[in-house]
């Protein structure tokens, strides 16, 4: 039983689909952040698999930069979320429909 590139791409797609389901059904912003982390990780698996089966380091490089972006996204996003929670007491997406300048 040989594990091929297709196996990894199917796994990556399944995990990406789980993340997409999370993004679409979640209304709580913290849970929405969790779903985006799943999306980024699913892509990372695909990058590493292509890097291995094509014999090229470029995929791993892109995976590194994706991890760096995910880390900074969490830092800024959670900071904004804490500010919003201090002001309104809620982190519900439905309550963020109006903007007041």
């Amino acid at each position: 039983m040989e594990i091929t590139l297709t196996h990894y791409l199917v796994l990556s797609t399944v995990l990406f689909a789980i993340g997409l389901i999370g993004v679409m059904r979640r209304k709580n912003l913290l849970m929405l952040f969790f779903a985006t982390e799943i999306l980024l990780n699913a892509v990372n698996i695909g990058m590493a698999a292509i890097s291995h089966y094509r014999g090229d380091y470029t995929g791993q490089m892109f995976a590194f930069f994706i991890i760096a972006i995910a880390a900074s996204e969490v830092a800024v996003g959670l900071g904004l979320l804490i500010v919003w929670y201090k002001r309104t007491g809620k982190i519900d997406l439905d309550q963020m429909t109006s903007m007041r300048g």
């Binding site: 930069f65 880390a71 900074s72 830092a75 959670l78 900071g79 804490i82 500010v83």
Partner: peptide, 17 residues
């Protein structure tokens, strides 16, 4: 650029939280 981005994100996180 990623290093600068992480620095900006760190400062933003500290200032916001």
């Amino acid at each position: 650029l990623a290093a600068v981005m992480l620095l900006v994100a760190m400062i933003a996180g500290i200032v916001l939280a």
